[in-house]
């Protein structure tokens, strides 16, 4: 290629005005052997561009990755539960049973006078239901109250709790 052509192309290149095609011409020129002395300092940038543009992974690279993934998968499936993990599970179960046992054994023995009369504590207030039906209804309303609080509509349920109070006022409070 004529030297003045290359000089013109280089000037355009430094100014950011070359087309993709002209840039390819420059890369071709610099990857050849016939480079003018005055152009030598600039060879590195164009040779490097060529090298990067042409860089590709080896053909078997993808197969290697898939093989590694497959190996990993079988390893994960075969991996046995270690003895330590089994014993940890047993220990956790025993701990749970012990805690539950202590809880249930302790509850009736607590010498609270409230414990002698059937009662419910709802929203900080003590209720003494007269019958099983009423206890059931109170429990149901209490659960409704909780669920409604979660739904941010507390008023309706508090009202229905008060309605029960009105049905059988004699059985409330101490």
């Amino acid at each position: 290629m004529h030297m003045t052509t290359i000089d013109k192309l280089l000037d355009k290149y430094w100014a950011g005005e070359t087309s993709l095609n002209e840039e390819a011409q420059l890369r071709d020129y610099f990857s050849g052997t016939d480079i003018a002395e005055s152009h030598r300092p600039f060879a590195e940038v164009f040779v490097y561009q060529n090298k990067i543009a042409q860089a590709t992974l080896p053909d078997d690279f993808e197969a290697e990755i898939l093989k590694k993934i497959a190996n990993q998968h079988t390893r994960a499936v075969v991996k046995p539960i270690t003895r330590i993990r089994k014993w940890l599970a047993v220990a956790a179960a025993v701990l749970f049973l012990l805690t539950a046992g202590i809880f249930f054994l302790k509850t009736p023995s607590s010498s609270n006078e409230l414990a002698e009369i059937p009662h419910l504590i709802i929203n900080g207030e003590v209720y003494y239901p007269a019958s099983e039906e009423e206890a059931y209804e109170l429990t149901r309303q209490a659960l409704l109250l909780v669920s409604s609080k979660m739904n941010k509509e507390p008023k309706a349920s508090i009202k229905s709790l008060k309605n029960i109070k009105n049905i059988n006022p004699a059985s409330w409070g101490k």
């Binding site: 990067i52 543009a53 860089a55 590709t56 992974l57 690279f61 993808e62 990755i65």
Partner: peptide
């Protein structure tokens, strides 16, 4: 997987 050469050039 088809991104492999693009990623390779970036890494290089």
């Amino acid at each position: 997987l088809p991104l492999k050469n693009q990623l390779y050039r970036l890494a290089l």
